[in-house]
Design a protein around this nucleic acid. Structure first.
Length: 426
DNA sequence: TCTGGGGTCCTAGGACCC
DNA sequence: TCTGGGGTCCTAGGACCC
């Protein structure tokens, strides 16, 4: 049996932890640049504040109801996330915990017998809440997809299940599937939901679970779909995954605080994002061979996700590297190439791919020993910046003006990771 | 004029997730 | 007027190889 532990309204809960007077009050957290709403407390949901909706559309409701608003504070959320995950690892052993996202983890509970599950799930929930102050919901079922179904219902009917739901037999599973709309299944997004409803008159998870694997394969994205069907039928098809698999793509992209029309600022932004991406690369001990840069012009057509059409290009380097200076040069050249005079831009991004472990970089006979010195330099920069948490050391290309910097008008303190912002009790 | 039967690698794009 | 920032997997199709 598997479980999924999910932190309730995670970012909002993090903010509330240090502002207890916001308990039972509506709270929202905004995305970078204060653009969208990415987390809502239950009270805010009840007011009709939409998830992932643009903040400016919700502003009236927010102001009228005195909703507390925060810019996202990833230092704080990252640290509290680590505490939650560490609690789970202590309770169940490292190898039985798969961290799925900042606020979710799958657990392998196969060591427990079926009649212990409810008790265990409750214990997990209570311990996490006691040790970290973050409220969680726990769903338990034979497969990951079914555990997600259980988790969702445990939250939806909180007064009945109190945040813990176990689906141990067919009867319980079918009852849960029946209460789950097709759109709410993990793995069914907008496109597939529409297709299932319009073409096949399938509206709930129970109906879908009765379809064949073949149906999934044909209509829901090939092997991905057949796996989903199997999981719904209670047959494990998504296994627990090992942790610390290195990423195959690393991206740093941002909207600008306000539109940018000069090439120097664009170059600074691209250099900054490159430096950040290179840091992520070194943190997982990798090197990248391909670097891509893209920009989005202001006023350009939006796609359905409002993410904008991009103009991008990439270069493949002679050898994979993780050195910031070697990545910044081609990145800036790409930015130069993409930039059109007279256009103003609202967003830019850098992506690194062709990623390999940095101890197995294809050797190049013509490279000198100075490489080793550079590695040491990078380590040193990373160490200083990490310990200071504030980019004390930077490359010149990154610039110092940052007039393109994003907006963060409602940021809270980094209560747990920054000495001068520690939470104080008087 | 006729034109095999395998492979591999890479890229672009579409779907999904939080 | 103002709409995030990451990631994943899979498939199809083209280039190229023997």
């Amino acid at each position: 049996m598997k479980a999924i532990v999910d932190c309730n309204n995670f970012y909002c809960s993090c903010e509330r932890l240090f502002k207890p007077h916001l308990e039972n009050k509506p709270v929202v957290v905004l995305s970078n640049n204060d653009g969208c709403i990415v987390s809502r407390s239950n009270e805010a949901k009840k007011l009709g504040v939409e998830m992932a909706g643009p903040y400016f559309l919700a502003k009236t409701v927010v102001e009228k109801n005195d909703v507390a608003v925060f810019s996202s504070n990833y230092n704080l959320y990252g640290d509290l996330s680590w505490r939650v995950m560490e609690t789970l690892r202590i309770m169940l052993g490292k190898k039985n915990v798969e961290v799925y996202s900042v606020d979710e983890a799958f657990l392998d509970l196969s060591i427990f017998s079926k009649n212990e599950l409810k008790k265990i799930a409750k214990e997990i929930k209570d311990t996490v809440e006691l040790w970290t102050g973050i409220k969680v919901s726990v769903g338990v079922a034979p497969t990951k997809v079914l555990a997600k179904v259980a988790n969702r219902l445990s939250k939806k009917q909180i007064s009945k299940y109190n945040g813990v739901m176990v689906l141990a037999n067919e009867e319980e599973i079918n009852a849960a599937l029946k209460q789950t709309a097709i759109d709410d299944i993990w793995g069914i997004g907008r496109q597939y939901a529409k297709k299932l409803k319009e073409n096949f008159c399938i509206y709930d998870a129970l109906q879908l679970s009765k379809m064949s694997e073949e149906f999934g394969k044909i209509h829901l994205g090939g092997v991905v779909g057949s796996r989903l069907l199997r999981e719904l039928k209670g047959v494990t098809s998504k296994d627990m995954e090992e942790e610390l698999v290195s990423k195959k793509m690393i991206a740093t992209t941002r909207m600008f605080g306000s539109p940018v029309g000069d090439i120097d600022s664009i170059k600074e932004a691209v250099a900054t994002y490159t430096a950040r991406a290179a840091e992520k690369l070194r943190r997982q001990h990798s090197a990248a061979r391909v670097i891509s840069v893209f920009v989005v012009a202001k006023g350009e057509d939006h796609n359905v996700d409002f993410r904008g059409a991009t103009h991008g290009d990439s270069v493949t380097l002679p050898t994979a590297t993780s050195y910031t200076n070697e990545l910044i040069k081609p990145a800036i050249a790409l930015a130069d190439k993409l930039f059109k005079n007279g256009t103003s831009y609202k967003k830019a991004g850098v992506m690194l791919s062709g990623i390999v472990p940095d101890n197995s970089i294809q050797g190049n006979l013509f490279l000198s020993d100075t490489k080793n010195c550079e590695r040491k330099l990078m380590d040193m920069i990373d160490n200083v910046n990490f310990s200071q948490r504030n980019d004390v050391l930077k490359f010149a290309a990154v610039g110092t003006t940052r007039n393109w910097k994003m907006q963060r008008n409602f940021i809270s303190d980094r209560y747990t990771t920054q000495w001068d912002e520690l939470f104080e009790v008087s």
